[in-house]
Simulated scan of single mutants.
Amino acid sequence: MFYRPADGHGLPHNPFNAIVTPRPIGWISTRDAQGRTNLAPYSFFNGVAYEPPQVMFASTSNKPDRGDTKDSLANIRETGVFCVNVVEYAMRDAMNATSATLPREVDEADSAGVEMAPCREIDCARVANAPASLECRMTQIVKIEGAFNFVVFGEVVGVHLRDDALVDGRFDVTTYQPLSRMGYRDYTVVREVFELKRPDD
């Protein structure tokens, strides 16, 4: 099968959503100028640089009460900060609950029963029990093709690691089992890890 996205695919669901997988989930916490917390998952998320450490996530839709975007991006425009929380398998239901479209004044973390804690370097909340949380200062918001498509870049200025995820001096994903997004409504979990040495090692 071949199709041009501009012409449509003719399938019941968009196959593009299932091609680039698995995708890590950035559980993005933000606050607005009034100090209200927002928490939402984004699967167009990744790390993009080591020195200084930087991450990105893309926001690709909008809400009627936020104009051209959603709460997360609107809040980052106001405050310039956000926190990326890593999602573990045990938090899958809470993460999913925070994906609900709610009015801007509603705290998704509170609605989903997610315990939050203050960040150290930025004025924002983080998921208290996340395996890792990355405190970020926004560096760029890039408008890309599409009416509501924006990419947010941030420099990581603080890192929280849960103690039980550190094993022999390494951040060990097998201790908490990262959750990843597949296509459609499908997810997967990391339970097996193997090592490959590079030719230059």
Rank of each mutant, 00 (worst) to 15 (best):
C136W: 04
V84I: 15
N62F: 13
Q177E: 07
G146E: 07
V142T: 15
G183D: 04
I144V: 15
F2P: 00
R92T: 06
D163E: 14
N17F: 01
R92N: 08
D68W: 04
A18Q: 14
N85D: 07
C119T: 03
V84C: 13
T139S: 14
A58D: 00
T101Q: 12
P22H: 02
P103T: 11
I25L: 07
E51D: 15
S99C: 07
F44N: 05
C119A: 15
Q177P: 00
T175V: 11
A128P: 09
E105Q: 15
S133A: 15
T30H: 02
E88R: 06
P178Y: 09
V157E: 10
M182E: 13
F82A: 05
T30P: 01
T188Y: 00
A165P: 05
G80F: 01
E78Y: 08
F2C: 00
T60K: 07
P131R: 04
Y3H: 09
R31Y: 04
R162E: 09
R66Y: 14
D123A: 11
H160V: 02
D71A: 02
F150T: 02
T98D: 06
E108L: 11
A94N: 10
A130D: 06
L179F: 13
F45Q: 01
G35L: 10
G183V: 10
E78S: 09
A130V: 03
M56H: 02
L166V: 15
Q140S: 13
G8C: 12
T174H: 03
P53H: 09
V48D: 03
M95W: 03
N38A: 13
N149V: 11
H9Q: 13
K63Y: 15
T30G: 01
E108A: 11
Y176T: 02
Y89L: 12
N46L: 03
D186W: 03
E88F: 01
R185K: 06
R36V: 15
P131S: 04
N38R: 10
S59E: 13
A49L: 13
G26A: 05
G113K: 09
D107L: 00
V86S: 05
S72K: 02
N62I: 08
A112C: 12
S111H: 15
P199C: 11
C124S: 04
G47D: 02
R185G: 05
N46D: 03
E195V: 08
R4M: 14
Y50I: 07
R126M: 14
C124M: 08
K63E: 13
V159C: 01
P118L: 09
Y187I: 00
V167G: 00
E145T: 13
R77T: 05
A165E: 00
L179S: 09
A58R: 01
F148M: 03
R104D: 07
R4G: 09
K143T: 06
Y89C: 09
E195S: 02
D168H: 10
L11H: 10
F153G: 05
Y42N: 01
V84P: 12
V127G: 10
L102Q: 06
Y3Q: 06
E192V: 12
Y3N: 02
Y176F: 14
H9Y: 10
P103S: 10
P24E: 04
R92I: 13
F82G: 01
Y89S: 14
Y50F: 10
W27C: 05
I141A: 03
P41H: 05
E88P: 02
P178R: 12
D201S: 14
L73E: 07
E135I: 04
